[in-house]
Design a protein around this nucleic acid. Structure first.
Lengths: 332, 332
DNA sequence: GTGAAAGCGCTAACAG
DNA sequence: CTGTTAGCGCTTTCAC
């Protein structure tokens, strides 16, 4: 088995306390001893046992990241941001996919409690009350990711989804579109609720007519299904706005296959601006969100809360979405 | 703070040993005591401290997953597979991105040792010796992911990359292409070495001429750079084979922008068959790998090794790649 | 069937 | 500056 603190101490001819000091407060150890102990540590390939350390100190250096699905490029980017920022602060990240199911979310939360994570970054599966009191009671910090919080007793990092919905419709309106299909996901998802609110608001102002096509999952296949429904409508809309880019890709495929030109016959607008949008059959116009930055900011906020919960002031950071115009939207 | 074993014991009027028994071997506890203790546990919302438990028992229920970059859709799929399979067995997964750097890989490995993971699933950053003796010495199981191992003392789950390279060239040869550009990554990456071997082998058999364009990272931007180099060649190849789909997307973009038709003027073939290939400007022909399945299989193998290292027989699982023909390759 | 007690490996007082 | 020591919360003999 591998070496432990006592082995190092014995071999270096010092006490365990000194070795512990070398590890945790090297500045209080004399240079000579420091060097000798460090050499021994290297020789033995000693790595401190995290459990024991954490058991003693009461704190781990791990955080949990709970997202609906890392396979969605938006969340993949977010996850990379979280991971990079956490790693910079020497934290390790547990990755959990909730698949937008409350049940899976709870299961993972309980796993994370057992693993004694220091904090949790979560994109809630459900629009309702994200209190996570059971975590807080245990001293686990929680920050909301890509979701805004109403109460100011927790941190959140989000993108203004209401504004995103607005921007999208305003863009389509500016191109002369008044008859717009809104391909959207389950109303249980907070982001969907907000974007819909923005859509409705902008449509009212601009006197546009919105027909809603609701799907159960936000992926390419469901986008294809949605497009098939649109093709059956008595009157084709002149523009289609999708709640994310994956849906838009699915819609694009089916429309092109049906011989409908984009953007000549129908304008198509996505959401998330995932990097592949650029390489699509028709480069996809989209609403861009700073995904990587979102992850970085959230991780930094969470870790700062973990490390000095006294000093820490909860923040609600809100990024602004941006319209990225490519080839898939055009004047009517 | 939250309740611990002693609190439960005191409240229930029993000893800590008994509470521990309730938790771990309920069958040895008398029904009456059992019920009383369980009620107390529920009342106090007691969740055992994982550290202490693991410190004592010596084993955690966590594994580490080290991949070059989760943002690459291929590895995202793999990661989902790993996560799903691990979660089914009640393991939590640490996610680490090595960015194809040995230094980062080592840093993460040391973090994982500290976290006392039970096993590690790794796609090595470097083609050379993946022994990971320092992990094994510590009783941490290691399985290679998307990389074949030479020695039979460890598990590996991989896809036949030599064959993949061959299939690709054979496909292009069958379409009449004899002058092929091979856009590839660093030779330090095992997958690259193997695919190149397959390419070379098939080219020799088919008497094709291969010109190699090497890039440092396997992403879209580098694909664009490679395409610019190809445009400067005195003689354009009639087909381009890229070491992954991201490179191919970059190449596609630049060629289309330069007014070159795909596949009429140049055939383009990718590798990985990521799901967006379908939605690309020209639907991308590619070599498909069972990414999700790869992740699931690797996680199951690793966990089975962790749980009974006595019984466990090391396995080298090798999946076969498959040609997926779409619109980007055609007869010369 | 239950309780007492010895650590797992480490950190953080506290003495010296 | 270094050594000694008491636990962190739990599991696991070993008595009773």
């Amino acid at each position: 088995m591998s070496a432990n603190l006592r082995d190092v101490a014995k071999k270096a001819g010092v006490s365990v306390g000194t070795v512990s000091n070398v590890l945790n407060r090297p500045e209080v150890v004399s240079p000579k001893t420091l060097e000798r102990v460090q050499k021994t540590i290297a020789e033995l390939g000693f790595v401190p046992n995290g459990f024991a350390r954490q058991l003693r100190s009461g704190y781990s250096r791990t955080i949990g990241l709970v997202v609906p699905d890392v396979a969605n490029p938006f969340f993949t980017e977010v996850a990379r941001g979280v991971e990079d920022a956490a790693s910079k602060r020497n934290y390790a990240v547990f990755l959990c996919n909730s698949d937008e199911s409350l049940e899976k979310e709870n299961k993972y939360l309980s796993v994370l409690i057992q693993q004694q994570v220091r904090g949790v970054l979560i994109t809630p599966a459900d629009a309702q009350g994200h209190e996570y009191e059971n975590l807080r009671e245990r001293g686990i910090s929680v920050a909301l990711l890509d979701t805004e919080t109403k109460n100011s007793s927790q941190c959140s990092v989000s993108v203004d989804d209401v504004r995103g919905g607005e921007i999208a419709i305003e863009h389509l309106l500016s191109l002369g579109h008044k008859d717009i299909a809104w391909v959207t996901g389950p109303e249980t998802i907070p982001q969907i609720v907000d974007r819909t609110m923005g859509v409705t608001k902008a449509a009212k102002v601009g006197k546009a007519e919105i027909s809603t096509i609701r799907v159960t999952l936000m992926n390419v296949a469901q986008g294809e299904a949605a497009a098939k429904k649109i093709l059956l409508l008595k009157k084709m809309p002149s523009a289609i706005f999708c709640a994310n880019d994956l849906l838009a890709f699915g819609v694009m495929r089916v429309l092109l296959d049906a011989g409908i030109n984009i953007p000549e016959q129908v304008s198509l607008l996505g959401y998330d601006d995932i990097s592949f949008g650029n390489s699509a059959a028709v480069p996809l116009s989209s609403i861009s969100q700073p995904a990587y930055q979102l992850g970085v900011t959230a991780a930094e906020l969470l870790i700062s809360e973990c490390e000095d919960s006294e000093e820490h002031a909860h923040q609600q950071v809100k990024f602004q979405p941006q319209l990225v115009m490519r080839a898939s939207t055009a004047s009517k």
